[in-house]
């Protein structure tokens, strides 16, 4: 059964198409990721699904309810963490949580089992004001607040933006725990490396979805062999390879350059031979499995 079903949603702001004919489904109990840069339309999609925004056209249901007609029913069933959600800074951890519990017509005790693992981590700071918490702890508190009424579906809009690596890792661990408890999770992120942590992902750019599948499938459908190369002077190498007619694409990727060749059956030796023309010092090349970011770049090239 589908928890979320989106069909041909369009949303425009003036002349900008924020969401351009988007369709996707999220299965019950799935951890689904919307992956794309700022301005790709992720937030608009979240707002439409949480009944905060009306689409220009298209339909969407959440937990079987229509986002326009049955907005009250949806508001009872979803947990939502907006991108800029920062809680009430002047209220303590406990007060924030109690407040949201009451607003959602429940109490901390009622659904304690669900938030226990997360809440235990911030509990020592119960009487600290939310404004004085670190980014990671704020995020945990926000997640507790979004979970307090035991929602069927959790919508998390860029929950890891501006949070450090340690907190990010902990956060994804928490999401996996929640998934085990049967909660459907829709999460958005601009960080491509987080895509691998989702069951299925949609790569989204300029309001439209370029690809939907499991991360493994997306990686496997990368059309060509991908190579990573480096040299002492990486910028020179980048310029040289990019200018070479045998190289199809070449771009920086961390400490390496990633490149594809025009010929189908090229290998490391082909590239070494090409590079040799330019005499780079400390040259290395290896064939690699593409990352989601490579796929994203490839798909953007197709658009």
């Amino acid at each position: 059964m589908s928890s979320v079903r989106v069909k041909n949603i369009i949303k425009t702001y003036g002349e900008v198409k924020a969401v351009d004919n988007v369709s996707f489904e999220v299965q019950k109990g799935e951890l689904f990721g919307l992956i794309g840069p700022d301005g790709a339309g992720k937030t608009s999609i979240f707002r439409i699904l949480t009944t905060l925004l009306l689409a220009d056209s298209g339909t969407a249901t959440v937990d079987g309810y229509d986002v326009v007609k049955d907005y009250q029913a949806i508001r009872n069933r979803v947990g939502y963490m907006p991108g800029r959600f920062s809680l009430y800074q002047d209220l303590t951890v406990k007060e924030n949580l109690t407040f949201f519990a009451t607003v959602f017509g429940t109490s901390i005790e009622e659904n304690y089992a669900l938030i226990k693992d997360i809440y235990e981590q911030i509990r020592p700071f119960n009487n600290r004001r939310a404004g004085k918490l670190s980014g990671g702890m704020k995020q945990k508190l926000a997640l507790c607040c979004a979970l307090i009424h035991k929602p069927a579906i959790l919508f998390l809009d860029e929950p890891t933006t501006g949070v450090d690596v340690v907190s990010r890792k902990e956060f994804w661990d928490m999401l996996n725990q929640l998934k085990k408890q049967g909660i459907t999770i829709v999460v958005s992120t601009p960080y491509m490396d987080e895509a691998m942590l989702c069951d299925r992902i949609a790569l989204i750019q300029n309001g439209s979805i370029m690809s939907i599948n499991t991360p493994d499938h997306i990686v496997q459908s990368f059309p060509k062999p991908l190579f990573a190369a480096k040299a002492d002077n990486i910028y020179r190498l980048l310029q040289d390879l990019r200018a070479d007619t045998e190289v199809e694409s070449c771009y920086a990727f961390g400490e390496y350059l990633h490149l594809t060749l025009r010929v189908k059956d090229g290998n490391e030796h082909t590239i070494s031979a090409i590079a040799a023309k330019y005499n780079p010092g400390g040259f290395e090349v290896k064939r690699i499995a593409p990352a989601i970011e490579d796929c994203f770049i490839e798909l953007m090239g197709n658009e």
């Binding site: 949480t50 905060l52 979803v78 800029r84 800074q89 949201f100 959602f104 607040c145 979004a146």
Partner: peptide
């Protein structure tokens, strides 16, 4: 703050 969004979706 963005809390209005939460309150609306409640």
């Amino acid at each position: 703050l963005g809390t209005m969004e939460i309150l609306l979706v409640s």
